[in-house]
Design a protein around this nucleic acid. Sequence first.
DNA 1: TTGACGCATTCCTATATGGGAATATGATAA
DNA 2: TTATCATATTCCCATATAGGAATGCGTCAA
Lengths: 115, 115
Amino acid sequence: MARATTTSDAFNAIAEPQRRQILDLLKQGERPVHDLARELGIAQPSASKHLRVLREVRLVRVREVGKRRYYGLDARGLRPIHQWVGGFEEFWNETFDRLDTYVQHLKSDANEGAQ
Amino acid sequence: MARATTTSDAFNAIAEPQRRQILDLLKQGERPVHDLARELGIAQPSASKHLRVLREVRLVRVREVGKRRYYGLDARGLRPIHQWVGGFEEFWNETFDRLDTYVQHLKSDANEGAQ
DNA sequence: TTGACGCATTCCTATATGGGAATATGATAA
DNA sequence: TTATCATATTCCCATATAGGAATGCGTCAA
């Protein structure tokens, strides 16, 4: 099997750095495509493709005004990610302790072996 | 260009559901590979491959005991993700309001047009 | 109507994937 | 030493990229 689609969920969608940049930019408000493309220094078709992915996973919404399409943030899809990652909050502090404990285990094992 | 490597950063590494499951399981403590494989219902080589990815992005660490390799959580790499996603916290609540405001704009525009 | 603009889509290609199967590697037990 | 167990690695393949280039398409201005 191949890798999961970028549009399969928000996790995959935000794995791409440029798409994260787009979301960051949209914090300031809605923006048309060429604006985002220029800001990111990428070609317009690339921006459109990234935006399509973000649209399909519902992280952005579009408002059409004349020939422009204003993309805006819809951050609700990020909430599950925040929650999942947040489930490790107690661990990324504890990890150091664990590593220390582990190292101490090693040392005491070594000492016992030496005795 | 192709997609970014799964090992390019933690964002890409955790885009794969099974790797997230592995991390979830490791909250309970260290586990050998066959244990994880059985728990996830996948073949041992698959587990080893996923663990390799997680190792390369430093989300897990290994402790070798005899022929077993106990994989343990190193959640520190999840912190940047939590922070980045957390930067949208004010938006995933506000988004509803924005959408409402937007809809009202549309309505008022329509009314003005009708006048 | 025509041309220009803003954006989406399509075609193309190199690349990395995840899984299955087979095999290599290393450690332990007999 | 040899058989066995626990893991890692390799080879295979179908698949989905991301970007560049070209093009389609609707909208607006002249």
